[in-house]
Amino acid sequence: MTMTKRQLLMKKYVSSIALVFGLLVGATSAMASEEGGLPSAGTNVNDQASLQRGAKLFFNYCVGCHSLKYVRYSRISEDLGLSEKEVMDNLNFTGDKFGDPVISHMPEASGRQFFGKAPPDLSLEVRAKGADWVYGYLNSFYLDPSRPVGWNNAVFANASMPNPLWELQGLQTAEMKADDKDAVEKLELSQPGKLTPAQFKQATRDLTSFLEYAAEPAALQRQRYGIWVLLFLAGFTLLAYTLKKEYWKDVH
């Protein structure tokens, strides 16, 4: 009789633990999928090769205008598994020092002059907008002769930025909605680029991954340590539970 009651109690504890974690996981996955109509970026900051490809794209196509003022070259080297020489030869084209942050050498005034607005720093772009938004944005440029620089974007209407990756993607044109001439119905590749559409998707995924890493370099560490912390705490909790059981034996 005593055993069944104890088992019942144990079952209650276990099921409440399972319920709490189930709710946590459910809530987080529900929130993660909440970003409204954008295709999933499918990024993975633990894929180092993807981060390296993304970094290469960033330093070839983006850093001309955009800074990563909170990210140092030395940190990129450390986190992406690249040597100092590799970083300085392949990523740092500005002549800045290894310990310096990634600062674009385009003067802010020129940026304003060229685009009407200085290109923003991208250190925290993924944390501010979400990876899906950045990935969608990079894939949604289309030609629009009515815009000052000739480009528009289906994810961020009337963005002042031209498509820096047009050589890779090719040129997209937009078919507008029948009932709303300002909303994009769908985009079509009117002139292919150097990459196939599938390759381009992968390239922008790599680039988004790199920006996701740049937005939170600590993500690499916290996930690595997190597993051990959870295991330790689970063990501690179990131990505390048995201690409690032992002490409470004589409470009737």
């Binding site: 633990i17 709490v20 974690f21 946590l24 987080t28 916290r222 996930q223 340590y225 997190g226 912390v229 959870l230 705490l233 689970a234 501690f236 909790t237 131990l239 505390a240 539970y241 201690l243 409690k244 002490y247 409470w248």
Partner: peptide, 21 residues
């Protein structure tokens, strides 16, 4: 000792959030 168990359980949830979400 009972609260110690509660703290352990609570910290496990907190750590899950801190390290993963």
């Amino acid at each position: 000792v009972k609260d110690l168990f509660g703290v352990g359980f609570f910290l496990t949830i907190a750590a899950f959030i801190i390290f993963f979400v």
